[in-house]
């Protein structure tokens, strides 16, 4: 399950930190692992194209590596693209089989970004945080 690529992203996370002027920010956690993430997204002037992404947090290698890879993948995509992504997209990015109980770790960043976008567009009510418990 732990290819070199995953370990590399875990040890040297890309897009790590906070954006100066994000369009929206959302947080989330996976209570089972204690994984916690904050995702910042900056949109271009069209209010649709993702221009900048960063994440911050801690947790298991799967959650952190997935966040690192996912944040790189998002840049240049639209909110519509983000909305259309599902768990398989993240698992494809990781490039390994993820055991069923660890899927929650893998999709944490994706779910946070999707919830954050929905709240930003007024499609979802404000929520304190996203959880991947269910």
């Amino acid at each position: 399950m732990y290819r070199q690529q995953i370990l590399d992203h875990y040890k040297n996370p890309r897009n790590y930190g906070e954006l100066d002027d994000p369009s929206f920010t959302h947080v989330g956690e996976n209570p089972m692992c204690g994984d916690a993430l904050r995702v910042d997204i900056k949109l271009a002037d069209d209010d649709e194209t993702i221009e900048g992404v960063s994440f911050k947090g801690d947790g298991c290698a799967i959650s952190q590596a997935a966040a690192s890879m996912f944040s790189g993948e998002l840049r240049g995509k639209t909110l519509e693209d983000l909305d259309a992504m599902d768990r398989d997209d993240v698992i494809d990015l990781l490039g390994v089989d993820i055991s069923p109980v660890r899927v929650k770790c893998a999709v944490l960043a994706e779910k946070i970004a999707q919830d954050g976008a929905s709240i930003y567009r007024g499609e979802k009510e404000e929520m304190e945080k996203t959880t991947t418990e269910e």
């Binding site: 399950m1 732990y2 089972m32 692992c33 298991c60 290698a61 799967i62 055991s99 660890r102 770790c105």
Partner: peptide
């Protein structure tokens, strides 16, 4: 430096 879930996954290998 290794989350318990990562440890258990690696040991499962």
């Amino acid at each position: 430096g290794v989350h318990a879930h990562d440890l258990a996954s690696i040991m499962n290998d």
